[in-house]
Simulated assay, not measured.
Amino acid sequence: MKIPVRNLGIAPNAWAVNHTFADITRSPQIPQPVILSTETKTLRLDLAKTAILVIDMQNDFCHPDGWLAHIGVDVTPAQKPVQPLQILLPELRNKNVPVFWVNWGNRPDLLNISANLLHVYNSTGEGVGLGDPLPSNGAKVLMAGSWAAAVVDELQQLPQDIRVDKYRMSGFWDTPLDSILRNLGRTTLLFAGVNADQCVMATLQDANFLGYDCLLVKDCTATTSPEYCWLATIYNVNQCFGFVSDSQAILNALQQSPGC
Results as ranks from 00 to 15, higher is better:
Ile24Tyr: 12
Trp104Lys: 03
Gln29Tyr: 03
Thr38Trp: 08
Pro31Phe: 10
Ser136Val: 14
Pro12Phe: 04
Met143Trp: 01
Leu47Val: 13
Pro84Thr: 06
Thr25Asp: 14
Asp65Met: 09
Tyr121His: 13
Ala149Val: 01
Thr40His: 15
Val82Pro: 00
Gly145Trp: 03
Asn137Leu: 04
Ile10Trp: 09
Ile113Lys: 01
Gly138Asp: 09
Leu47Asn: 08
Trp67Asn: 00
Leu88Lys: 03
Gln32Lys: 15
Gln32Arg: 14
Gln29Gly: 10
Ile87Phe: 10
Ser146Ala: 09
Pro84Leu: 08
Pro98Leu: 07
Leu92Gln: 07
Val102Met: 03
Val120Asp: 14
Leu142Arg: 00
Gly105His: 01
Thr20Trp: 13
Val73Ile: 15
Ile55Val: 14
Ile55Tyr: 02
Trp147Cys: 04
Val34Ser: 06
Lys80Leu: 13
Leu68Thr: 03
Gly72Gln: 09
Thr25Ser: 15
Gly72Lys: 12
Lys140Cys: 02
Asn59Leu: 03
Ala78Lys: 02
Thr42Lys: 11
Ile113Asp: 01
Ala139His: 05
Gln32Ala: 13
Thr20Gly: 09
His70Met: 10
Pro31Asn: 11
Pro90Asp: 07
Pro108Trp: 02
Lys49Asp: 11
His119Trp: 11
Ile35Val: 14
Ala78Thr: 09
Val17Ile: 15
Ala144Pro: 02
Leu85Ile: 06
Leu89Val: 07
Thr50Ala: 13
Ala139Val: 06
Ala139Asp: 07
Trp147Lys: 03
Leu111Trp: 12
Gly131Cys: 01
Thr20Arg: 15
Trp101Gln: 06
Asp153Glu: 15
Thr20Ile: 12
Asn122Asp: 15
Gly127Glu: 07
Leu134Gln: 04
Phe61Asn: 01
Arg107His: 14
Asp132Ser: 09
Gln83Leu: 14
Asn122Ala: 08
Val151Cys: 05
Asp60Ala: 05
Asn112Leu: 12
Gly66Ala: 05
Trp101Lys: 02
Thr124Val: 06
Val151His: 04
Ile30Thr: 15
Pro84Ser: 10
Phe61Tyr: 12
Ala78Leu: 06
Ala149Gln: 01
Met143Pro: 02
Val99Ser: 05
Gln32Ser: 10
Ala16Phe: 11
Leu111Thr: 15
Asp23Trp: 10
Asn13Glu: 11
Ser114Ala: 13
Trp15Ala: 12
Leu45Ile: 15
Asn13Trp: 12
Ala78Cys: 13
Pro33Cys: 10
Arg26Trp: 11
Pro84Tyr: 05
Asp46Leu: 09
His119Arg: 14
Ile30Gly: 06
Asn13Asp: 13
Asp132Phe: 05
Val82Trp: 05
Asp56Leu: 06
Val17Ser: 02
Val151Pro: 00
Thr38Pro: 07
Ile71Asp: 08
Gln58Gly: 04
Lys140Arg: 15
Pro135Glu: 10
Ala115Arg: 08
Asn106Pro: 02
Gly138Thr: 11
Met143His: 03
Arg44Val: 14
Ser27Trp: 09
Ser123His: 13
Asp65Cys: 08
Thr124Met: 03
Ala22Lys: 13
Glu91Pro: 05
Val97Phe: 02
Val102Arg: 00
